[in-house]
């Protein structure tokens, strides 16, 4: 059994698990993978800089003219914001250009069967009859739901962020494109509040997301984590998947 244990720990790249008949399925094409990691970098930067903007927890001393701490932090925030928006655009484009796992239909729980399976997935994670869990190659319904929610939240962050950003240049393009948001939420302070509060959504999502990725990798030993690096995973030849 020692071989098995090794396999369990492996982060199985393109090396097939040392057992059974497996096939390699290519799931995430390179644009998706690159965008994922760029978005990860962007979001981590945005969270860290955003929390500083929200509460400057350390200060500089001396002459104001010799420091630019908040200026730099805000610059980093806006640069990361630009990166995030870019990844969003590419991802949006790929909803139509990508493979069946990457397309619009795979991303949102649109079909009836997805909703049925959603319940089973929840039970799976609650370890109630886990063997009845549906098997997906791409996103399972729970992932669909959480990723969809995350995309929506990111969308709100981007919109509220740009609405805030636009304030410094009234009449400018960003201002004009976003100045419906303030009145919609009952004033710019509320926009700021939403932007601030939703930051926590990322801090809640990330540990769960990373845990589930590692867990799946660990249990299924089929390279789920590596899929977002290498693009694909190994699956038993004879296994049928819901979304295949």
């Amino acid at each position: 059994m020692s071989g098995t244990r090794e396999a369990k720990l492996s982060l199985a790249h393109k090396v097939p698990p040392p057992t059974g008949a497996y096939r390699w399925v290519y799931l995430w094409e390179w644009p998706i993978r690159i965008m994922h990691w760029l978005a990860v970098a962007g979001i981590l930067t945005l969270v860290v800089t955003g929390l500083y903007i929200g509460r400057p927890y350390f200060m500089t001393g001396g002459e104001a003219s010799s420091h630019f701490l908040m200026g730099r932090v805000r610059f980093a925030h806006f640069t990361a914001a630009a990166v995030l928006v870019m990844t969003g655009i590419v991802r949006g484009y790929w909803l139509f250009m990508g493979n069946r796992y990457e397309r619009l239909r795979a991303l949102f729980p649109l079909r009836r069967r997805d909703w049925v399976n959603l319940v089973r997935m929840v039970k799976f994670y609650l370890m109630i009859r886990p063997e009845r869990a549906p098997h997906y190659l791409g996103h399972n319904p729970l992932q669909q739901l959480s990723y969809t929610a995350l995309y929506a939240i990111t969308g709100v962050m981007v919109l509220s962020g740009f609405a805030l950003y636009g304030q410094s240049d009234p009449g400018g393009f960003i201002y004009s494109a976003t100045n419906w948001i303030g009145p919609l939420l009952g004033g710019m302070p509320n926009v700021r509040f939403v932007h601030h509060a939703l930051t926590w959504a990322f801090l809640i999502f990330v540990p769960i997301h990373v845990y589930l990725a590692i867990r799946a990798d660990h249990l299924e030993r089929t390279g789920v984590i590596s899929s977002i690096v290498s693009g694909g995973r190994f699956v038993p030849v004879d296994h049928h998947f819901v979304d295949e």
């Binding site: 929200g54 509460r55 004033g187 302070p189 509320n190 700021r192 509040f193 601030h196 509060a197 930051t199 926590w200 801090l203 809640i204 999502f205 540990p207 769960i208």
Partner: peptide, 25 residues
């Protein structure tokens, strides 16, 4: 810095709540 949205005192607790949820997660 942030408004008291809805008058329920959410503003001051939102960070506490968020941090609690993140730690909870």
């Amino acid at each position: 810095r942030l408004p008291d949205v809805g008058g329920f005192g959410v503003e001051r607790t939102v960070d506490i709540l968020g941090a609690a949820l993140a730690i909870g997660a």
